[in-house]
């Protein structure tokens, strides 16, 4: 597959057809995208706690080295947690991927420009913290490469995957049916799907 990227293609391709993947999303756009790709028990949508998606993905990845973990977040959310990239690089889990949907905008607050609209290069930041496999994705073929890398998580890798998917100016609105917004419910359904109903007792 080649050609131009739409932001919905990212969640559709990376989350929509990978039932085993453990997913943490950012707030707003990436939660909408992931929800539209198909609500699933093994996705934890953040509705708050901005800046924590990568850290949450790290805790999850360390707890389940036998599973593949994806953090799907936006540029604004990632910018708020830049330090967590250094922490991820240092911990170096091989089963974690962080994919940033970079529209260069704060989409939920009026479309203000983010730092990535200027000189800030998140892929370079991630590489500089020590995440060697840090990619810039600009077309559908490169997105396919990321999808392939997700399949190798935890097995054939030396460290985590970081990818910035460039979709400048592309906004995402909430889906007709919102993803669940009760964080406690999302937690319970995730844990039950992963470990069975015994964890609820």
């Amino acid at each position: 597959m080649t050609g131009a990227l739409t932001r919905q293609m990212i969640a559709d391709r990376l989350v929509g057809n990978d039932a085993d993947l453990l997913v943490v999303t950012g707030l707003g756009g990436t939660a909408w995208d992931a929800s539209r790709a198909g609500d699933r028990e093994l996705t934890y949508y953040l509705w708050g706690g901005m800046g924590l998606a990568a850290s949450m993905g790290l805790g999850l990845a360390l707890s389940r080295p036998d599973r593949r973990v994806l953090v799907l977040t936006g540029d604004g959310e990632m910018l708020m947690g830049l330090g967590s990239l250094a922490t991820v690089a240092r911990a170096a889990p091989t089963n974690l991927a962080i994919v940033v949907v970079d529209n260069e905008l704060y989409g939920e607050t009026g479309g203000q420009m983010s730092h990535t609209a200027g000189a800030c290069d998140l892929a370079a930041v991630a590489r500089a913290t020590g995440i060697a496999d840090s990619r810039l994705v600009s077309d559908a073929a490169q997105l396919e490469d990321v999808a392939g890398a997700l399949r190798t998580l935890g097995t054939e890798r030396q460290g985590p995957v970081f990818a910035v998917v460039r979709v400048p100016g592309q906004l995402s609105g909430p889906p007709a049916e919102l993803p669940p917004r009760d964080g406690t419910y999302l937690k319970h359904r995730f844990r039950e799907a992963l470990m069975g109903s015994a964890v609820l007792r």
Binding site: V24, G57, L60, G81, G83, S84, L194
Partner: peptide, 13 residues
């Protein structure tokens, strides 16, 4: 970051 880390750890058991 530790608050996110701990929540993620709990999600994973």
């Amino acid at each position: 970051e530790g608050v996110g880390l701990a929540a993620g750890a709990w999600l994973g058991g």
